[in-house]
């Protein structure tokens, strides 16, 4: 089988080799590849495969985190070129994500955070036990499109509802951020009741949900 020109890059991303990934991406540029093509044809299918393999539990969180780091390193190198070309490729979506006040569970939220990153979203992870107002302030500061909130403890859910209300009841913010929620006691019905725009059953569906919400942001049909 002839060697695919992206194989080297994909191998480094799969290994989570930060420096080697960036170096390989630059080598491809020097060899005449268009940066946008590198992302669309080289990196995206690779990331999609990584996400799928995690969904099948063939690889695990550490591999995801390392691959995300590798892709971030490539972005640092290629982003200025993309911008110079006037591409809006990197505008896939900006997400702030955190576990709500009163709750310290972080692994599930971390998985979502990393899966979003390897799927091309720009993510600001606020950590755990984040007060509702801080989530909103960070979303403004980060100029987020989407807010993702996780909660695994029932007595924390009222604070999640507060965060949603702070956006939905504020005319200046209501249309600015789309919010999706998830975590053990959070159900689709509850999410709808409190006015969330989206709900994710698990980490893999969180990426699908964020993608759906981004279409809403961009005014595309879903």
């Amino acid at each position: 089988m002839p060697l695919n020109k992206w194989d080297g890059l994909r191998r480094e991303i799969n290994l989570g080799a930060v420096e080697a990934s960036a170096a390989e991406a630059l080598r491809l540029v020097e060899a005449g590849e268009d940066p946008l093509t590198i992302f669309l044809e080289g990196i995206e299918p690779c990331l999609s495969e990584i996400g799928d393999r995690f969904g099948r539990l063939e690889i695990f969180l550490p591999e995801l985190m390392l691959s995300a780091d590798a892709v971030k390193a490539i972005q640092v190198e290629l982003l200025p070129m993309l911008e110079a070309d006037g591409s809006d490729y990197m505008k896939k979506g900006r997400v702030v994500i955190g576990t709500i006040f009163g709750d310290i569970h972080d692994i599930g939220k971390n998985i979502v955070s990393v899966l979003l990153q390897v799927s091309g979203f720009e993510v600001r992870d606020l950590g755990v036990a984040v007060p509702a107002q801080d989530i909103i302030d960070s979303a403004k500061d980060f100029d987020a499109d989407i807010i993702g909130i996780s909660g695994l403890m029932m007595p924390s859910l009222p604070y999640m509802r507060d965060a949603i209300s702070l956006v939905k009841e504020n005319p200046e913010l209501a249309d600015r951020f789309r919010i999706f929620v998830g975590g053990g006691p959070v159900t689709r019905e509850w999410a709808e009741m409190v006015g969330a725009d989206g709900f994710a059953e698990d980490a893999v569906s969180a990426v699908e949900e964020a993608t759906r919400l981004m279409k809403l942001v961009k005014g595309e049909s879903v």
């Binding site: 539990l57 695990f60 969180l61 550490p62 591999e63 692994i107």
Partner: peptide
């Protein structure tokens, strides 16, 4: 521990 999380698979 979360399976598939920082510990990875069965052995981890």
């Amino acid at each position: 521990p979360i399976y598939g999380g920082l510990g990875g698979g069965v052995e981890g």
